[in-house]
Design a protein around this nucleic acid. Structure first.
Lengths: 214, 214
DNA sequence: GAAATCTTTGACCCTTTGGTCAAGGGCAGG
DNA sequence: CCTGCCCTTGACCAAAGGGTCAAAGATTTC
């Protein structure tokens, strides 16, 4: 062991240790998610985030180096959660059931995590200035991998031979729409359709059922 | 149906008269579309818009009262263009063909007017603070009307009996996705899929063909 | 229970940004 | 070629917003 050893943590910023740090960084990230997803990066202000988090602005900046740092932290944390439903798609499973299950998981995410969906949408809309690498790397790789699985299923005659990448895009578009365009969906459905999701679920079941039938 | 139809021009600001006014307001609105759609309302600055328009900032404000006024002008001009493809759906036409044609028109708009699509998406994402009225009025009314037409077609057994409103949402989601998430689509498809639209068109033809078959 | 360390914040700073204004430039009509 | 009305802009302004800092409060450690 030379004296250059003993580097406890190889990478970047240390994660929160104390109870109080854990609580505050958590509160900040949650508040930031709230504000960024509703206002976009430039639309959000540190004061707003601080207020939602119940902290003072300088206190925010004690935990995060900058507004940008908070945003980056949110996004990088998000990517995994976001891709999990696709990761779970099992190459060994029953093809149609696997895809339908993926659709349902994704719709559930739109319902349960609309803020995350909007944060993501905002970022992509602006050309993903802070996520390009993750999109072109991690995300593309996973999609390519799963597209290959789907192609296999199609060649085995298990499901219809539609373009795998566009199939995945269609799942994203149709499910995230209910989070990202929530305001419009609710406005159009009016008060009767208070919760659009049950009906959306039925609709998507039909749609993908028909699309995938061999 | 109602007698509140179009009045000549009783309201607000006078439209541009002179050649020079027409040219400059045009340049400003085009520049603003460029900048707002790429950066969002708060992300855009008057200086950026002025630069793209080739005018000085005070000169912008000679033509428009405020940043907000430019935005509002853009959005209200947009609404009509945006709904036109749906308006064209003919109740007297052949049901499946009418809907398929609507899908194609909408996809073409996503390809030809991505900035408008993103401007719209930005606005809805933020909860439509400047368009709520138009969404809840004009847009909802048109959608309700067309949903009724679709329901008629379904009861006549011409197309499958899927939820009309969600059918329309699905058309919006699937077509606008190619404009709003363009960056992601291209990143995932990689260099081979340089122009995603031809393949997207084929995919959507299949998808809606299968969905609508009675 | 005092030193050492971690949290918190009031006050402050400087840049950005939406918006104003008075004065100067152009251009049409007489 | 002069008068009057558009058009244009350099110079400002005030507010907002990201970020800093020194000092005061808590906590933890020994």
């Amino acid at each position: 062991m030379n004296e250059f050893a003993a580097q406890p943590e190889p990478e970047e910023e240390a994660r929160p240790r104390t109870r109080i740090q854990r609580r505050n960084t958590g509160a900040i990230l949650d508040a930031a998610l709230e504000v960024f997803s509703a206002q976009g990066f430039r639309g959000a202000t540190l004061d707003q985030i601080a207020e939602v988090a119940g902290l003072s602005k300088p206190n925010l900046l004690y935990y995060f180096a900058s507004k940008e740092a908070i945003h980056v932290e949110l996004l990088s944390g998000l990517m995994d959660t976001w891709l999990d439903p696709l990761r779970e798609m099992d190459p060994e499973g029953e093809p149609e059931a696997e895809i339908m299950a993926y659709v349902r998981r994704k719709l559930q995410m739109a319902r349960d995590y609309p803020r995350e969906s909007r944060l993501f949408a905002n970022e992509i809309l602006q050309g993903a200035p802070r996520m390009r690498a993750a999109i072109e790397g991690e995300l593309k790789d996973l999609v390519d991998e799963k597209a290959e699985v789907i192609r296999g299923w199609q060649q085995a005659g298990k499901i219809a031979g539609v373009h795998p990448h566009h199939l995945i895009f269609s799942i994203w578009a149709l499910t995230q729409h209910y989070a990202d365009f929530d305001m419009q969906v609710r406005a159009v459905l009016g008060p009767e359709g208070a919760d659009p999701f049950p009906e959306a679920g039925k609709f998507l079941d039909t749609l993908f059922g028909r699309l995938l039938a061999p």
